[in-house]
Design a protein around this nucleic acid. Sequence first.
DNA 1: CTGCTATTGATATATTGTTATCATTAATAA
DNA 2: TTATTAATGATAACAATATATCAATAGCAG
Lengths: 125, 125
Amino acid sequence: MERNTRQRDAILDVISAAGRPLSTQEILTAGKVAVPSLSIATVYRTLKDLVAEGCVLPVKLPGEPDRYEMAKLDDHYHFKCSTCSKVFDIHDRIKKKNLHVPRNFIIEKYDLILYGQCSDCVPKH
Amino acid sequence: MERNTRQRDAILDVISAAGRPLSTQEILTAGKVAVPSLSIATVYRTLKDLVAEGCVLPVKLPGEPDRYEMAKLDDHYHFKCSTCSKVFDIHDRIKKKNLHVPRNFIIEKYDLILYGQCSDCVPKH
DNA sequence: CTGCTATTGATATATTGTTATCATTAATAA
DNA sequence: TTATTAATGATAACAATATATCAATAGCAG
C-alpha cells in the first residue's frame, strides 16, 4: 500500500506554498529545509505520482525543463522574468474571439507565455 | 572566406519555400531532394550560421526541438496541429492592452501557441 | 587546371533532464 | 516492539538533441 512519507509531504507543501510554478531544483532546495536528506530522485518520483494523481500539473516552457504547480487553479497563463528566471501565474484569459486562424482550422487550446521583468527585477528609476 | 555550397543553398531554399517552420528532420528530408548526400550535421551547422546571420529564426515550442523559418516575416504566432504535428504561422497579433500583468511587471515580448486541428486534419462531417 | 582550405559526411562525443537500479531506511500492521 | 516491504538516497544508465572530430570532398582564387 502507499505510505505517507515526510518527503512526500514536504514536496507537496513546497509546491502548495509557492504560488508559482517551481522547477525540480527549486522543489529540491526548498524541500531540504524540512527534510535535509531529500534526494532529486525522490523529487522526480513524487512529482510523477502527484501528476498522475492529478493534483499537480507540469508547466511547459519552450526550451526549458518542466516546472510544477498545484492543479485546480483558475485558468491562467504564465509570465517568465528574463532576469531572475522565475515564472509567475497570470490569472487572466484571452478571449477566443481575439484569436484568428485560417478557415477550417479548429483551436483546441492555447498557451500564452509572457516574457519581461517582474516587479523585483524591473530597473528602479 | 565563406563559400557558397549546394548544401547551403538547398537548405535555404527548403526553409524559404516551406511557408511554415520546419524541424531539422524535415529540412534534412526535403534538402536531400536537391543534395542526396546531405547530412544532418550539415543541417545543424548551416542552421546555426543562418540564425547567427539573422536570416533564419528558431521557433521554440514547449517540449519539442526547435523548428526554423525565415526571419523578417510579419509579427505572428504559431499553430500546431495535434494530429499531423505540423506548425503553421498565424499572421496576427494580440493587442498589448488585452494582456494584464501585475503592477510593476513589464512585458517585453510574448509567445502564443495555439493547438488544434489544421484544415487537412479536421474531421470531415 | 592546380592548390589551398573551407565545408562536408559519418560518427563519436557532449549535454541535459529524467528514469532505473539496488542496498538501506523507515512507515505501517500486527 | 517487531516484521514486512514501500519508499528513499546515491548514482548509474538512459534518451534526445546538438556539437565536435577528422578524413575526404569540392569551392574558388590564381
